[in-house]
Nucleic acid binder design. Structure first.
Length: 265
DNA sequence: GTTCTCGGCCG
DNA sequence: CGGCCGAGAAC
């Protein structure tokens, strides 16, 4: 007898994803159930980390409950003291994984190494491992950044930066907003200098001539004036940061003395 | 080889 | 207690 297992649709996930729940029928853990998900291509997932690794940033699993398969609005982070300690942990040298950038979603449905470079014993074959390990990149992927905004803890949208006039966008989406994101991303992802698109051909037909390791931005020159202006901004930012840190220290000291009084009473 | 299943660790 | 994943069992 074949036990038909229910693979139910899962509305909280993109179309085509299925959820399955199997009950353990023997052993010490009999009665317990395991939950699995199946991607549209049939790949099986047995944990939330595994699922979110695969989905990347396309789906926010922050409040996704793996067991029930539903979004739980109330399952957000504990928005209490938590924030301070999070910020402290971040200074302990670990990367903030939330800054991960959007990734090409279609790549992972194929068997992973798409191209394999091998040496045939009798042939002279150029091996360029650099190219072989390079991940395919979606042209104009920066468009995915459109609409992303930074916000403070109260979800108030922060004012975005102004860009110098010398910076000009290139490609299908020429809004300043996306340009800023693209440049910020480029600064995060590569240690190479950011030059913008140096080929003038890229201006006429970006789809062909685009240098994908540079942001969607025309080549630019930085003047001494720009540098001075930027130094001033950095200086001001450091001042406000310093002020904020001092204020925080004072507040924390007050808090801890208050706590101690409370405990003594 | 792949898939299924339960144990068991760890938070 | 439950999520997650290792590894043996089953195929």
């Amino acid at each position: 007898m074949i036990m038909e297992r229910k693979r139910t649709d899962c509305p909280a996930l993109p179309p085509g994803w299925k959820k399955e729940e199997v009950i353990r029928k023997s052993g010490l853990s009999a009665g317990k159930s395991d939950v699995y998900y199946y991607s549209p291509t049939g790949k099986k997932f047995r944990s939330k980390p595994q699922l979110s690794r695969y989905l990347g940033n396309s789906v926010d699993l922050g409040c996704f409950d793996f067991r029930t398969g539903k979004m739980m609005p109330g399952k957000m982070q504990k928005n209490k003291q938590r924030l301070r300690s999070d910020n402290l942990n971040m200074t302990k040298g670990k990367l903030d994984l939330n800054t991960a950038l959007p990734i090409r979603q279609t790549a992972s449905i194929f068997k992973q190494p798409v191209t394999k470079v091998v040496n045939h014993p009798n042939n002279k074959v150029k091996t360029d491992l650099q190219k072989a390990t390079e991940q395919p990149r979606q042209l104009f992927w920066e468009k995915r950044l459109k609409g992303l905004r930074s916000s403070d803890v109260t979800e108030e949208v922060l004012r975005t930066m102004e860009l110098p006039k010398g910076l000009q966008s290139i490609g299908p989406d020429s809004s300043d907003e996306t340009l800023l994101s693209a440049i910020a991303s480029a600064l995060h992802m590569s240690s190479a200098p950011i030059t913008g698109q140096t080929s003038t051909a890229a201006e006429k037909n970006p789809a062909i001539w685009l240098n994908s390791s540079q942001p969607l931005c025309k080549a630019f020159t930085v003047t001494d004036e720009d540098i001075r202006e930027q130094e001033l901004k950095v200086h001001q930012a450091r001042r406000s940061l310093e002020d904020a840190l001092i204020a925080d220290g004072v507040a924390r000291a007050a808090e801890s003395t208050r706590d101690m009084k409370g405990r003594a009473a």
